[in-house]
Amino acid sequence: MKAAVIVFPGSNCDRDAATALAHVTGRAPVMVWHREADLPEVDLIVVPGGFSYGDYLRSGAMAAHSPIMAAVKARAEKGVRVLGICNGFQVLTEAGMLPGVLMRNRKLKFICRDVLLKVETSNSDFTAGYNAGQVIRIPVAHHDGNYFAEAAVLDRLEDEDRVAFRYCDAEGHATAEANPNGSQRNIAGILSEKRNVLGMMPHPERLADPLLGGTDGVPMFRALLKALG
């Protein structure tokens, strides 16, 4: 599996993503600067977390229109897997590659801690390494993670089995108390229509090594490796 990690000014999880990918796949990804208009031939593109362009205007709004994103969008349309983590998820919604928007957290605070996630579907190359219904622990670190979309859009995401993860309690119930940021229907991650684009607020790359306190992020990278060779 060949992977690329996009680097914007203000990205700060690009190297974490690269380390996790190298650790699991044994192959270092290509780092691609946002000013590039072209991408190398890769099987997976990671749009990493951080504060691209200082979150100016809206989180992800400027990055969504940077030169490299046209190439990312074109590759996604051809079926290349795209993983947007945290700011990367914000960039993908702003670029129109995923529906909805990530608004300011309901309680206005920046949240940086581990949360529990219910894996809602194992039907994707990103989540095939988990069982549907499984509860995993993954950290979040964001100010704008409050997922919003119109009710009809949310219904459609659910009908098409495109909700990948929900914030939940230890028993896997998506309760209001387990929702850290006010996201509609506790949504933490969603898939595109063709299931080749995943956007998620939590950071699987930050729990991909026992030294970091956990490995619940590893099955995602292993599943991608298995699917993409």
């Binding site: 809206r58 919604t93 529906p99």
Partner: peptide
């Protein structure tokens, strides 16, 4: 429409 506002919200 393209940048200054996010017309979803």
């Amino acid at each position: 429409r393209k940048l200054l506002a996010n017309t979803v919200i």
